[in-house]
Design a protein around this nucleic acid. Sequence first.
DNA 1: CTTATTGGTCAAGTTACTTGACCAAGGGAA
DNA 2: TTCCCTTGGTCAAGTAACTTGACCAATAAG
Lengths: 187, 187
Amino acid sequence: MSDSTFPIGMKLRHARKIKGMRLCDLADQVECSEGFLSKLENDKVKPSLQLLHRIVAVLETSISTLFSKTDDSIVSRAGTRQILHTSNIRPGEGVSLETLISPSKGHLLFGTIHIVSAGGGSSGTIIHEGEELGYVLEGELDLDVDGTEYHLMPGDSFFFPSRLPHGYRNPTDKETRVLWVNTPPTF
Amino acid sequence: MSDSTFPIGMKLRHARKIKGMRLCDLADQVECSEGFLSKLENDKVKPSLQLLHRIVAVLETSISTLFSKTDDSIVSRAGTRQILHTSNIRPGEGVSLETLISPSKGHLLFGTIHIVSAGGGSSGTIIHEGEELGYVLEGELDLDVDGTEYHLMPGDSFFFPSRLPHGYRNPTDKETRVLWVNTPPTF
DNA sequence: CTTATTGGTCAAGTTACTTGACCAAGGGAA
DNA sequence: TTCCCTTGGTCAAGTAACTTGACCAATAAG
């Protein structure tokens, strides 16, 4: 039973929740039984590779993501974290990401510190599934969610479903740092 | 019915969930019916002030907190947030939770600021499903995860699967504030 | 050809919450 | 007083979503 079973249940459940599906919805689309999916999400059965394939297809994730080892460095120290510059990827945005959780996929949570330089901001309002939670550590931020703009000061926080179109900008001439957590990386 | 009823239902539900109580548990302690509490949390009835008093006593919140205006669901401002006291923790070991996410059902993310008073901390290492992410805003924290202790300073962060036994303590004589996000909301 | 094991199905059970029917107590107005 | 009506509840049946146990077809092994 529970020999060397890799615990993918929780990840599957999360992937399903992200899509707002019930077990019966998923069972419907995957064409298997609801009960089996329940047992699967509770790590009480092992699925066939074929079935698993159909499941990850519907949930829009991948088997490799599912089985990737979740990084176990528990604590990350201030100043020691990997910093990614989005301008290396898409030029001219002036946003850096300090990774709180090593983005080794398969996590349910994803956390970064958005370091938004003066005048910088996000570009394309990315719309995806999941939820976003943020907390302004330092500086100010103009956050635009679903057409409404919010001016945030240190200590303010925000929360919204990722499906709402959203973007942000730092209107000041000082750097802004925002702790940003969202559900899953979708890698 | 829904005339000028201030919507306290969700806040009550949230306060209850924080304490890990079911409707029947609360009904038991408050000495009223489960059904009435359900309707109350769904803003379908108005309670007597007496009953409400007993409820907030058990949930360790206050009527004034309950009726304080929570602004828009997306942004919550520093200093305006609901504060809950956890007391399934040993008495006198002050930990308060400042809720970042205005309580609503079905969220994937749950975020609070743990305000740990000098010498305070969690007691029973609670084990549940999901993942935990934290960031020390201010003060210091001794975090114990799966038998290993970490001493955290401001700006340090941590991340671990909730299934690992964990607890924390503030070893200093200054208040510590930790931004804490987890998934799923404590059920 | 038996006998086990694997990968499932199906329907009954459980949990936690919700809802509708009802009811006792108090407070006017006639 | 009696009648009615609102308020603040109770109680038990209903429901949504998940879980579990019994079982079964199709290989695989002896």
